[in-house]
């Protein structure tokens, strides 16, 4: 168990005419090794939720425990928390600021108070991990890179803090299909090598179905359902209630079913679908 959340509620600007409830008694446990996908329409509380995990938002009610850091305490160890939970915001390339890529990536580790040597090593490792050439890119200005490169550098800036939990808010937003694929491959690689637990917010149902082993459906500040994508994405009622669309593979399977082709399982990615169709053909 890496993250445990109980009865988390949050209201924006409470006590003013602008007060609005963002989270209503959310409870969820995230285990080490999970690849959790968070989905829900705009304003369903997803972003507010993940910002809590990094203590970017002050806890109003409920409890959050990240490993041994208890956020209900008066002064939780924020440095430790932010070294444990790495957060890649939406359009992370807009947070780049320093003169060189190397300096920018070392911003996080520096804030953690690591030694010069340690920082250098981590920066080199992080830049290499995100698929860029350290020697080529380290002295360039982050502002002269291409869009995809910028995003990689920004992700490297978080990876260099060696978080055990990596959270990404819409990591594929604004990328072309190839860029999307590359980022998703990168995330999978990061999960295997550096951060065993990954949480992503995404509107890309195909990406969620393909990669995540757990999904949580947010709607109106609550988690309506949580479980394996295979179970939830085949639940028409749930999809309708959260105003989400099924992934292409699910739609395809259902379309086949309507034409009299009933597969023996609920495939959730391309490989499974192909296997299931082959089995059906061989019958």
């Amino acid at each position: 168990m890496s993250i445990e959340i109980k009865d988390l509620s949050y209201v924006y600007s409470p006590g003013t005419p602008y007060a609005s409830t963002a989270l209503k008694s959310v409870s969820i446990t995230i285990n080490e090794g999970d690849f959790l996908g968070i989905i829900g329409k705009t304003g369903s509380g997803k972003s507010t939720f993940i910002q809590h995990l990094n203590a970017l938002i002050k806890l109003q009610s409920g409890s959050i425990k990240v490993y041994d850091i208890d956020l209900t305490q008066k002064k939780p160890d924020l440095k430790k928390l932010r070294g444990t939970v790495g957060m890649v915001m939406q359009y992370p390339e807009y947070q780049l600021f320093d003169e060189t890529v190397e300096k920018d990536v070392s911003y996080g580790p520096k804030n953690l108070g690591l030694s010069e040597e340690e920082i250098k090593g981590r920066v080199r490792e992080a830049i290499t991990l995100v698929g860029l050439s350290y020697d080529e890119i380290k002295d360039r200005s982050p502002f002269e890179l291409s869009g995809g490169q910028k995003r990689r550098v920004a992700i490297a800036g978080v990876i260099a803090m060696r978080p055990r939990v990596l959270i990404l808010d819409e990591p594929t937003a604004g990328l072309d299909p190839r860029g999307k694929k590359e980022i998703l491959t990168l995330i999978k690689k990061l999960k295997e090598t550096s951060s065993p637990t990954v949480i992503i917010i995404s509107h890309d149902m195909d990406a969620v179905a393909e990669n995540c082993d757990k999904v949580a459906f947010f709607s109106g500040g609550e988690i309506l359902a949580e479980g394996a994508p295979r179970d939830l994405f085949y639940d028409d009622d749930l999809l309708a209630r959260t105003e989400m669309e099924a992934p292409a593979i699910v739609k395809l399977t259902k379309a086949l079913e309507n034409r009299g082709v009933t597969l023996d399982s609920h495939p959730i990615n391309k490989q499974e679908f192909v296997q299931a169709v082959k089995r059906w053909r061989d019958e």
């Binding site: 947070q95 996080g108 804030n111």
Partner: peptide
């Protein structure tokens, strides 16, 4: 928020340190 997530500290330190801490916010 993004820089805080990267461990930035905007609240502690003297005036000079606080001003310096704002650079990663002001440039972007």
């Amino acid at each position: 928020l993004a820089q805080k997530a990267r461990g930035a500290d905007f609240d502690s330190g003297g005036v000079l340190k606080k001003a310096k801490a704002m650079i990663p916010v002001l440039v972007p």
